[in-house]
Nucleic acid binder design. Structure first.
Lengths: 190, 190
DNA sequence: GTCTATAAAGCGATAGAC
DNA sequence: GTCTATCGCTTTATAGAC
């Protein structure tokens, strides 16, 4: 790999979190190149230099980065941990951290509901179904039946998404904290 | 009221459900006047005749119509019924019907997460908080403490929203049906 | 690698004929 | 009440100077 490539890749990686926040707060359609340019301090020319396919490529890479974060910080432990109860506790802690205790919205959920749904449907479905599978596996290893594990796993995922929606709608982050506590209790209840 | 007014009002009312579906499937930003014209069979001129303030007015009236449907079909019974358990059962049945068993998305939730959030924040917050209050009141009348009632009420609302998000993301409406059954059980559990 | 200028298309909204 | 034509603006995306 040439020097230039490495440097570019490094700066490119720094761009994604900034772009990510623009998509989060404005949605896919609302995130204009002007806003992205403002957030990154880059002109359109530079943005198209890094992302030749434009906005769609930016969103796809942002989704991939989010996916990767969850894969590393959440899914992996759920799949491999020999202490599934602890992995689940770490999941709830990680989720709370990631979503800033309910102040931050889930971009994957935003896109799932939004108009750009069709473009990113595969990525969205993959993200949730891998999370769902990993969590169900942890529950199974914690001693629950296959049916219970799958039901509780879906319940947890939908609770997170719903809590983010309602916290945003009511402008009350406490809703999220309470929901995460309830979810954790339901996940491991006898 | 003049004949013309009545006729116009009648046709206008017929317009809203058609426009509503455009907002639902494309979001506020994605719902262009071209798409709305297609769905209604009306040109821009006619649309602006009915809605002088354009797209924002259309969305506001669609939200008001949704609010009214829930007020009449769900909230009222929760507040007034002398059989709160039955009112809650009717709520879950009504919700299942309204959201087409998970195949239809919640426009209020879509807007709460989307880029147009700020414009409609008051309407969105009002809708959810009135639902929340009505359901909590029914639970209180069913014998639960104020704290339990409020917690369970918020849990139910967020479960509905989350189930719609996850069902859409996984493209699997069964997720919604299971979540509604779970929600109903949790709502009235001892 | 970053910028400005600009193209090409689509947007919401308006005007005015009918 | 409905239409067509069009305005003014913003959008994504490209071209080319530096």
């Amino acid at each position: 790999m040439a020097k230039g490539t490495i440097k570019a890749a490094s700066e490119r990686a720094d761009l994604l979190p900034l772009i990510s926040e623009v998509f989060r707060s404005h949605g896919y359609e609302g995130a204009t190149l002007a806003l992205i340019g403002e957030a990154t301090g880059l002109g359109k020319g530079s943005l198209y230099h890094f992302f030749p396919d434009g906005k769609a490529q930016m969103a796809a890479e942002v989704l991939a980065e989010i996916d990767h974060w969850f894969e590393v910080n959440i899914f992996a432990a759920l799949r491999k941990s020999d202490d599934p109860v602890r992995a689940i506790a770490e999941m709830t802690a990680g989720v709370d951290r990631y979503f800033h205790s309910g102040h931050r919205v889930c971009l994957v959920g935003v896109i799932a509901l939004g108009a750009s749904r069709d473009i990113f449907a595969a990525q969205v479905q993959d993200y949730f179904s891998r999370w769902n599978d990993a969590l169900a596996l942890a529950l199974r290893r914690a001693g629950f039946s296959a049916g219970v594990s799958r039901r509780r796993s879906a319940d947890a995922l939908l609770t997170i998404q719903g809590a983010l929606v309602l916290a945003r709608a009511l402008d009350d982050a406490k809703v999220f904290g309470q929901a995460m506590a309830d979810m954790k209790a339901r996940l491991l209840a006898k």
